[in-house]
Simulated assay, not measured.
Amino acid sequence: MTNYPKVLITDETLRDGLQIERSGVTVAEKLELLNRMVDAGLKRMVVGAFVNPKWSPQMGDTYELVKQIEPRPDVKFFSLALNDRGREERKAFTPPLSAEELPATHLHLCGVFIQRNTNKTLEDQERSWRLPIDRAVALGLKESAIGLSSGFGSNWTGKVSHEARMEALQRQYDAWSEAGIKVRRVDMADPMGWNTPTEVAKDVRAIKERFPTIDIFHVHFHNARALALLSFYEVLNLLQPTDTIIADTAIGGIGGCPYCGNGQATGMIATEDLVHLLQTLGIETGIHLDRLIETSHRLSEILGRPLHSQVSFNGPLPDQDSLYSEDVPVVFTFEEAQHFRLGSSVYEGNARPWIKEAK
């Protein structure tokens, strides 16, 4: 038992992760990765997107992938949909896909990004952002979510102020409240990696004060400036045991939006790095870190490039049973550092200059 909030990890490898990679990852490889992640203990993952394959070709096989997913009673599979057509297509595959957990409104705060990402304008958004509220009222739903995209800043238009974020959230909160629907969750989406621990902490404190019904914080932090895990840690320390964090991550820290300007360099929090952090804090995840590390290396093989997870490079902190042997020689390369999982063959022949040779 800890004083930390509950943490739910939603792995985005197969959606946000692969959408930024060149086409060529097969359905069979995606299923292999999915099964590896389930075997490692992940209970929530986004497996694809019902979007136009002309603009997101890596998601063009989502139909075929979803058809082959075997439902697991304890695992939730999600998929992105950006419009009514996509939502109807997603509904046809539910199950094995899980339904949206809460109806939600979202406001993009960058006009350039919403145009590039969804081919809509801020004026289009203004005309339609309340539609989820109307649908929720018609269905008699009682709880909801509010959220922002590009809330911390934009590569195209610059930094967004804390006051602007709070105003945009207040508009949504008031609209749901006027409809008689309780707001339980806030979605903090940062596709361009402008999150900083300072701004995130400022927002969390204000949200807890201004919107007391919110007890679920969904964070989708990209890691373009290497601050995503630090920002997550701020949220973790500011919330209470009665709160919940939903953290979006990706194996190997891959991920990024093609329309944000940073490509594969954008990245996300690496799933295995976050799991390791939680374990060091005594937060139980039910996830096998060693299996995640093996999945990360398999994903690297599939993509044909190094990934971004430090834990996969170096292994978790050794316990008493896995401390390094004093016989380990000098180690220089990434490959040689893999002795924690591959054994001594990776550094065979390297020198041990601290050992005096017999004369």
Rank of each mutant, 00 (worst) to 15 (best):
T2Q: 07
P5I: 07
P5A: 11
V7F: 04
I9E: 10
T10L: 15
T10F: 03
D11W: 12
L14K: 05
Q19I: 12
G24R: 00
V27H: 09
E32I: 07
L33C: 02
D39F: 11
A40Y: 00
G41Y: 02
K43I: 15
M45V: 08
V46C: 14
V47A: 14
F50D: 09
V51P: 00
K54V: 14
S56T: 14
Q58S: 00
E64H: 06
Q68S: 07
I69Y: 03
P71H: 08
P71Q: 06
D74V: 07
V75Q: 03
F77N: 11
L80K: 13
N83D: 14
N83H: 08
N83W: 13
D84P: 15
G86F: 00
G86P: 02
R87E: 04
A92S: 11
L97R: 07
S98D: 00
A99C: 03
E101K: 14
H106A: 14
H106M: 13
H108A: 10
H108I: 11
H108Q: 13
L109S: 02
L109P: 01
I114K: 12
R116L: 15
N117L: 09
L122H: 02
Q125C: 06
R127Q: 11
W129A: 04
P132G: 02
P132D: 06
D134T: 08
R135H: 06
G140V: 00
G140N: 02
A145V: 09
L148C: 08
L148A: 07
S149A: 10
S150C: 13
S150K: 14
F152M: 14
G153E: 10
G153D: 06
N155H: 10
K159V: 10
V160M: 05
V160E: 08
V160Y: 10
A164V: 10
R171D: 04
D174L: 13
A175C: 02
W176N: 03
S177R: 11
M188A: 13
T196R: 09
V200N: 05
R205K: 12
I207V: 11
K208Q: 15
K208T: 05
F211M: 00
D215I: 05
H218N: 14
V219K: 07
H220G: 01
A226M: 12
L227N: 05
L229R: 02
L229S: 01
Y233K: 09
V235N: 00
V235T: 01
L236F: 11
L239M: 10
I246A: 09
A250P: 03
I254P: 01
N262C: 11
N262F: 12
G267F: 12
E272L: 00
L274I: 04
V275W: 02
V275K: 04
G282I: 09
I283R: 01
E284P: 05
E284I: 04
G286I: 00
R291C: 06
I293Y: 06
T295K: 05
R298L: 05
L299H: 03
S300E: 13
R305Y: 02
L307K: 04
H308W: 13
S309W: 05
F313W: 15
P316D: 08
D321P: 02
L323F: 06
S325A: 02
E326G: 08
V331T: 09
F332S: 13
T333P: 04
H339L: 15
F340R: 06
Y347V: 03
G349K: 08
W354N: 06
E357F: 13
A358K: 14
